[in-house]
Amino acid sequence: MKDIFAIAKNGEATPVELGYHFPAEFAPQESMWLSWPHKEESWPGKIEKIYAPYAQFVKEVAKGQKVNINVADEAMKAFAMGHLERAGVDLNRVFFHFFPTNDAWCRDHGPAFVINPNAEQKKAIVKWNYNAWGDKYPPYDLDNQIPIRIAENLGIPYFKPGIVMEGGSVEFNGQGTLLTSTACLLNKNRNPQLNQAQIEQYLCDYYGVSNILWVGDGIIGDDTDGHIDDITRFVNADTVVTVVEENKSDENHEILAENLDLLKKMRLENGKQLNIVELPMPSPVIWEDQRLPASYANFYIGNDVVVVPTFRDNNDQKALDILTDCFPDRRVIGIDSTDIIWGLGSFHCLSQQEPAV
């Protein structure tokens, strides 16, 4: 049989043809991948304030799994370790890799792990192209190489579809259904040469899904053009939480009401309707006259914890209570993301899971 490393790299077969699929985030994980934040332009005037909540995030996830962190060099590693030690992180669970990055958003530039438990090579990576959300924030050459660096480090094959795709733009139930948004995936600043049907084919071929569901626009302030991980998330195979805005004068109200209506009409891969749990939005978070994309939906699901961004808002506890009901087998922890969200993303945007297999 031909070597799967060559087959994958040369594009001779797609992951789905070889029996691979992208698991749900709530499936067992081996580790979480991060790229240590260092780009001051992403948090102008505030970057020093993000390290304490970021380290707390690492601490909570590391209680249940390994955490891998991309850093540029020994100096950045020492800086990171100082913050992690102060937060009380179990450093036996943390592993540093000298893979330099342009920015911290590992959900979008990091590796998309696919698995086939029945294969000799049980794990592989899909190396999508990355262009910093439509060439908004160059340079991104280092970020674009991260999946290859990780695949080579782990000694696993990687597939190269050759199109732009970001991890925050897709959401999975692990049974064949993928949820995404037209605002992002059909945006001409990503893959202008492809129509919706062609993009769906890439999603099926490389993520191993069969049922693709589309919502519309993303929330106000989201510079990714509407990533799904700020709007609607799977909490189990047939249930989503989706954010809603009760204030009819808020500019998110209509966008989110339309998405809710779309979700109610959708069907899973087995023909069943979605179970839909509504999640409130926080009051608008404004910094330097800019509305930020604050959303409780940008949580990270780890092996034993769900880390939820909070915003010093009256709805924080309500959101935590709703998510606690959705994840009875995990600790649901709120961590203040008021400073982190100045970077226009939160814990889910900053992280990428590596599944256990």
Rank of each mutant, 00 (worst) to 15 (best):
M1F: 07
K2E: 14
D3M: 01
I7S: 10
A8G: 09
K9C: 13
G11M: 05
A13D: 09
T14G: 09
P15F: 00
G19P: 15
F22V: 12
E25L: 01
Q29E: 10
S35A: 04
E40T: 09
P44E: 05
I47M: 02
Y51P: 00
Y54W: 06
V58Y: 10
G64S: 09
G64I: 10
K66H: 11
K66I: 14
I69M: 11
I69L: 02
A72K: 06
D73S: 02
E74P: 04
A75E: 14
A78H: 10
F79R: 07
A80K: 11
A80D: 01
M81P: 14
H83A: 08
L84N: 09
F95N: 03
F95P: 04
F95A: 15
A104C: 08
R107G: 08
A112C: 04
N116K: 03
N116R: 06
P117W: 04
K122E: 12
K123T: 12
K123L: 15
K127H: 15
K127T: 05
N131D: 06
A132W: 05
G134E: 07
D135N: 13
Y137F: 14
Y140I: 04
L142C: 14
D143E: 03
D143A: 01
Q145A: 15
I148G: 13
N153H: 15
L154T: 14
I156V: 00
P157V: 12
Y158V: 12
Y158D: 04
F159V: 14
K160Q: 13
P161G: 07
E166F: 09
G167L: 05
V170S: 09
V170F: 11
E171G: 10
E171Q: 11
F172S: 01
Q175H: 13
T177I: 01
L179V: 02
C184W: 10
N189E: 07
Q196M: 13
Q196H: 04
Q196I: 08
E200R: 02
L203I: 05
D205A: 04
G216K: 11
D217L: 11
I219H: 01
I219G: 05
I220G: 10
I220W: 07
D222M: 08
D223T: 13
T224Y: 00
G226L: 08
T232C: 08
V235I: 13
V235T: 13
A237S: 10
T242N: 01
V243M: 03
E245D: 05
E246K: 14
S249R: 11
L256P: 05
L256I: 02
A257R: 15
N259Q: 06
D261P: 12
K265G: 10
K265Y: 03
M266E: 06
R267M: 01
L268D: 00
N270Q: 06
N270R: 05
N270W: 05
Q273V: 11
N275L: 00
N275K: 00
E278Y: 14
L279M: 08
M281I: 02
S283Y: 10
E288H: 04
L292M: 01
L292Q: 07
P293D: 11
A294K: 03
N298V: 01
V306A: 02
N315F: 00
D316R: 03
D316K: 01
I322Q: 12
I322P: 03
L323Y: 11
F327V: 02
R330V: 00
I335V: 11
I335P: 03
D339S: 10
D339W: 03
G345F: 07
C349F: 04
L350P: 11
S351K: 06
P355N: 14
